[in-house]
């Protein structure tokens, strides 16, 4: 086999990935490479297979049959749509869940997401946005090489969402993980990602390299052009 430069440097390497539920191919031959530190947003309609792809990368699809080549880094963190904090564990215990002697790092992580001083709160005492920030701290304290996020801001209100976008950008700049963000929000994808890919019926059908200047705003004409192309790929005609 010919040596492949991409395979040597990529954080994530997916080739010919097929996943089936009862004979129905949810992923039908997906090829994807993500470079270290690259932020990729994955767009797709409901049922397009985006969550299946993320779960395959997270190793959470043992109940599904499939084939294909899948290379992921050793340290992978997942942020779910719900914060998935253990309600019976204090905030700091949630952050350092399963890590030994990491309480000091956990505290720093909470400080990074703006929750210093809330270490001993119960998750139920926090707002939805704060809970999701704890979930981010829990992911980042593990210094992941790959961060998988499955619609992490889907359950938040619009204002909190904007704040979380800024926070996620800051955290990714500081920690430099490769990121795969699954979302159905086109603007969110363009604001956050280096590259946006579109999944439709189990296949990647489009990708856009986003090269807009740093404070990306939907008011930017370049933004609108990218947005139009992505919406088109999603089958939404305006």
């Amino acid at each position: 086999m010919a040596p492949d430069a991409g395979l040597l440097t990529a954080a994530v390497q997916v080739r010919g990935l097929v996943r089936r539920y009862d004979e129905r191919a949810v992923l039908d031959g997906v090829d994807l490479a993500i470079a270290p530190g690259e932020f990729v947003a994955l767009l797709g309609k409901s049922g397009s297979g985006k969550s299946t792809l993320l779960r395959a990368l997270a190793g959470l699809d043992s109940d599904v049959t499939g084939t294909g080549e899948l290379v992921v880094p050793a340290q992978v963190s997942v942020v779910f749509q719900d914060s998935r904090l253990l309600p019976w564990a204090k905030v700091l215990d949630n952050v350092v869940l399963g890590l030994n002697g990491a309480r000091e790092r956990g505290r720093q992580s909470l400080e990074e997401v703006g929750l210093a001083g809330r270490e001993n709160a119960w998750p139920n005492e926090l707002s939805g946005g704060e809970q999701q920030r704890v979930a981010l701290a829990r992911s980042l304290v593990r210094e992941p090489e790959l961060l998988l996020a499955d619609e992490p801001f889907g359950a938040l209100d619009a204002l909190t969402r904007l704040k979380m976008h800024a926070l996620l950008r800051k955290l990714c700049a500081a920690h430099q993980p490769a990121v795969l963000l699954v979302t159905h929000d086109v603007d969110e994808a363009i604001v956050l990602a280096d590259r946006v890919i579109v999944l439709d019926q189990g296949r990647l059908v489009a990708q856009e390299q986003i090269e807009l200047a740093a404070p990306r705003s939907p008011a930017d004409p370049g933004f609108a052009a990218v947005r139009a192309r992505l919406l088109d790929a999603l089958g939404v005609s305006l």
Partner: peptide, 15 residues
């Protein structure tokens, strides 16, 4: 969902 979480953060059986 908590079982899934335990898998993603790599908890040992005892933990």
């Amino acid at each position: 969902r908590y079982v899934e979480l335990a898998q993603t953060v790599g908890l040992s059986q005892w933990d």
